[in-house]
Amino acid sequence: MPTSRITARFEKVRAEGRAALVSYIMAGDPDLETSYKALCALRDNGADIIELGAPFTDPMADGPAIQRAGQRSLKAGTKLTDVLALAKRFREDDQDTPLILMGYANPVFHLGYEAFADAAADAGIDGTILVDLPPEEDHELRDAYARHEISVIRLATPTTTDKRIAKVAEGASGFLYYVAVAGVTGSGSADPQDIREGVERARRVSGLPVCVGFGVRTGEQAAAMAAIADGVVVGSAFVDHVRTSLEAGTPDKIPSKIGALAAELSGALADAGRN
């Protein structure tokens, strides 16, 4: 089996002695063309892995920033198939940057797990995070993924026990997404010391690279996380640039603002290195 893009990327990042920057944007926010430019800006400014949000009407695990991003995207008419088409377009010029589709189960279930798996593989999607599909319920999805090289990426939190981490890791691949604070996306910053133990536990039990997210907004916070984790996830801070640019009446600035934040974060991660 060839090495997956995700695994290859973690090997590269590790060889460079730093943590990976995992960035998130909502597909179709505010439109698909801007999202395409934002994806390129992320890649060109040091994002190692990109999570592409698929909008859903009922994003119960998301805070206000990503909720609104999803509403803007839905208002623009974005469908799951559009998200896949966006990924495919990005993949035409980029064979290396892992793309993770992040969203909720229902649109994927509605399209059909087999049909989705085929379309996602064709679009060059490397993994999915479906936040409301727990390990107990995703075997049909995993069966559909088995013919393709698509990773099921799962989440762990500070309340996840060792036994539960083992369950979460079963059938998961790529990396483990460690949610640093109890709560929804974009909620308050976590204290690195509090989560160090949790991340180490998650890595030990799962045997997967562990990326930490929820609450990271600045280069300084990212650097602090880098000392602990294999990757740092930043989402709401990118999505906020879409909102502020729209409010300022300058939607054309969205890609450059997102690129600038990616540059700040990746620069901080490069400087921080790994302990």
Partner: peptide, 21 residues
Amino acid sequence: GRPGILHGNKTYLLQTDDGQI
């Protein structure tokens, strides 16, 4: 409605052709 997944259970839901509620 049609079968779907919402609020942690799989059941019949009112939804669009794209699986939005």
